[in-house]
Design a protein around this nucleic acid. Structure first.
Length: 289
DNA sequence: CATCGATGTTTAA
DNA sequence: TAAACCTCGATGC
């Protein structure tokens, strides 16, 4: 699940269950032992997402997490710990917890299962982080450096404000590149938070051929693409999954992972090919140059 | 038990 | 362009 919507959801969840109170941080796996010690000594104040990055601001330090392709947080706790089982890559379902408490009144967590890079505990529950691409305590200045390399994030813009500076930045970023629009949308410096599913689904719904050179897309179509992605990401945050297709059944996408089947709009067979190491999906009938 | 693939990114060649 | 990295669930023998 880790496209931008997942990280914004995760930030909200971390704020809901951790921000403002002391926590206990450990690294059962051991690979984040030194970092965990530094985080354990401070209070988490505020979590925020920028594109696919999560930052948790503590008193003086910042915890940086990037889930990569298959990282995930799993949450467990007693009835007052309101959290979904997992945010990130799909994880196995676990049985209901029988809460027991220590002498300080803190919930006693279960022994960690598998490779838990970081465990953060609150009084009534905890979260386990597995498989992140990045899990680090930032040095001064690193936060700003990471943000400087990110393009505009549609989820950090007020919705329904039509001509915004953020959207203008996106149009400028596209106009400056000769690569295909399909390649450009995956560049986090062009637009932050878009991944393989949103790329495929936004280009399909805007009827844009993926190989169209980024700088040949008209300003009006580029603006419509931003608005489309903005709306899709917002739906993703609201629903907790990527649904770009409204149907009665379980199908959630128009083209993503539907190669070889008939396009629901025009009947042409949906195509797929490898582009820079990722699968690209599109409808050759709807997405003409 | 082995292999593969996944909503990602960086580094090396 | 390819490989490396982070982890685990699904699939295949």
């Amino acid at each position: 699940m880790p496209e931008g919507h997942t990280l914004h959801r995760l930030a909200a969840q971390v704020n809901a269950v951790f921000s403002g109170s002391p926590w206990r941080v450990s690294s059962p796996q051991g690979r984040f032992a030194a970092g965990a010690l530094r985080l354990d000594a401070e209070v988490p104040r505020h979590a925020e997402a920028w594109g696919k990055h999560l930052f948790v601001h503590l008193d003086t330090r910042i915890w940086h997490v990037h889930l990569g392709l298959y990282g995930a947080f799993s949450f467990r706790g007693d009835s007052s710990f309101a959290a979904p089982p997992s945010i990130g890559a799909p994880r196995a379902w676990t049985a209901e917890l029988r809460p027991r408490y220590d002498d300080d009144g803190w919930l006693i967590p279960e022994p960690p299962q598998g490779a838990v890079r970081a465990r953060v505990q609150a009084r009534h529950g905890w979260a386990d982080l597995r498989g992140p691409a990045t899990c680090a305590v930032l040095e001064p200045g690193e936060h700003a450096l990471i943000l400087a390399r990110l393009g505009p994030d549609p989820l950090r813009q007020a919705p329904d404000t039509s001509a915004t500076a953020e959207r203008e930045r996106f149009l400028e970023n596209l106009a400056r590149r000769r690569m295909s629009i399909a390649a450009a949308l995956m560049e986090q410096a062009v637009i932050a938070g878009v991944g393989n599913i949103y790329r495929a689904e936004s280009l399909f719904l805007e009827s844009i051929a993926p190989e169209t050179p980024s700088n040949e897309l008209s300003a009006s179509r580029a603006a419509a693409l931003w608005d489309r992605l903005s709306q899709q990401l917002r739906t993703g945050v609201r629903e907790g999954l990527i649904r770009t297709l409204r149907t009665e059944g379980d199908r959630r996408h128009w083209v993503y992972q539907h190669q070889g089947t008939a396009c629901l709009r025009c009947g042409e067979l949906i195509a797929a090919r490898e582009l820079q190491g990722r699968r690209l999906y599109w409808c050759p009938g709807c997405q003409l140059r």
